[in-house]
Amino acid sequence: MSRLAATFESLKAQNKTALIPYIMCGDPDLGTTVKLMHALVDSGVNMIELGVPFSDPMADGPVIQAAAERVLVNHVSLADVISVVAKFRETDTQTPVILMGYLNPVEVMGYDVFAGKASAAGVDAALTVDMPPEEGEAYTRLLKAKGIDPIYLLAPTSDEARIASIASVAGGFVYYVSLKGVTGAATLDIDSVGSKLTQIRQQISLPVGVGFGISDAQTAAKISKVADAVVVGSAIVKRMAELGHEPEKMIQSVIELTSSMRKAMDQA
């Protein structure tokens, strides 16, 4: 069984929801990213979504775009991100790592080369934001051949037919975007999220994560009642932006947030 499936299974047995933080790789530097990943695991997160920077992150809001711009000043590449995972795996062989980014860096590296290198480094899954199933047949096949789960997004606007087409190719879990908008947008309607998840689960047996717009422990706790995983991105990346010049304080600030979310989710 994959690390990802095993993690979801064990959480289910404990009646817990997965907490998945998103961090931008290389923010503020690659060494700090590895430290932060370990600190996040110690704070109670179950998987880590590691952002691969891209110059034109169309589906992201200003917070994540600014993070990408920060790390691109240092030319953090897809190969660097993969090497960070390899470093993390030296002492953590359990926690699943999901790469999240855009297609073009992967196009340049080559789908098969990417799948091979990522797999060898211990990457468990890849969410490629601008690669929909219609275009991704070969890509998905190459990822799966190397044991990497292709993670797909679902949106409030995804209809039955699209949910079905994504169900046929997705691996690991599906990631429900909880609002119409970009990452880091403000409001979240818990009831409508709940009813959409019911619709999704009629067609998809994989675990369903929810993200976009979850910024505090209270919201995380509410979402954890309906979702299999809670993804938190912009709220974390915002703290990283504020304290990037003091990496130790930055790590403290981030894990304060994830610890409080973990606690609230477990009590919900």
């Binding site: 219609e134 275009e135 949106a155 699209r162 975007v177 119409k180």
Partner: peptide, 18 residues
């Protein structure tokens, strides 16, 4: 599907597909 040979197509996030 909007392809001109290997070019074109729809490479967009799920949020834009609808």
């Amino acid at each position: 599907k909007g392809h001109f040979g290997i070019y074109g197509g729809v490479f967009a996030a799920e949020t834009l597909m609808q």
